[in-house]
Amino acid sequence: MEILFQGTFAKFSERSDENEDAFSLLANQGRIVVCDGASESFDAKIWARILADKFTSFDLTSENLVSCLEEYESLHNRADLSWSKAAAYDRGSFSTLIVVQDLPDTKSINITAIGDSVVVLTDGQKIIKSFPYSKSEEFLLAPTLLSTIGKHNDWLQSEESFLCSTEWSYRGMSSAYLICMTDALGAWLFRCIEDGSPDVLERVLKIRNEDELAELVTLEREGFMRRDDSTLIIARVSGE
């Protein structure tokens, strides 16, 4: 796997320190992790960072998620919080999670996705596959996220959790690109394609630095792209 771009652009450029997206990569191990901390959270920035760091090296299991919760709790002392911060802490922090694992031996990609961050497989001209969403309207749903309130993650023990993973083959594809995006970018990309603008893939795949990402996002926010922290990872894999 070759990483062609990795970067993020905050919802308010003058407040980049408030960006609540997090990502982590191990290119030589074919691993990409993207997390989008939810705005209505006590400390989504920290929660997203903990998840991104943990799942770069470990699989999504109950034990590893508990370890993330313990790390989050160790960083906050509820007893020292004001009433409002304690209430917000009790409400929790929330984040999406995407884990992409390249399996070069089988020319396939394993994906785990919780929430509304998306992964797209493209040949550069069209979308071959996407997960977990494939239409812009799906981004209007209220997604289930990973929470710092342990009981909110109980569904991971249910059969529903199988819906969070998929595996794609890219065998035979001479140029296969993976685009990992948080929701504002994903919803915009799908809607552009639905509206008949297939060159949007080309525009995204051309991005090679954060200035170019900022330029695209700033321009498209004038249209229908939602103002949100926007993270983009572009990787290339070879199926031949």
Binding site: S41, F42, D43, H76, S84, K85, A87, A88, R91
Partner: peptide, 14 residues
């Protein structure tokens, strides 16, 4: 009112 405040409160403040 408390609930509205909670929605707006993050680790650094309201």
């Amino acid at each position: 009112l408390a609930s509205l405040i909670t929605r707006c409160t993050k680790s650094e403040g309201t």
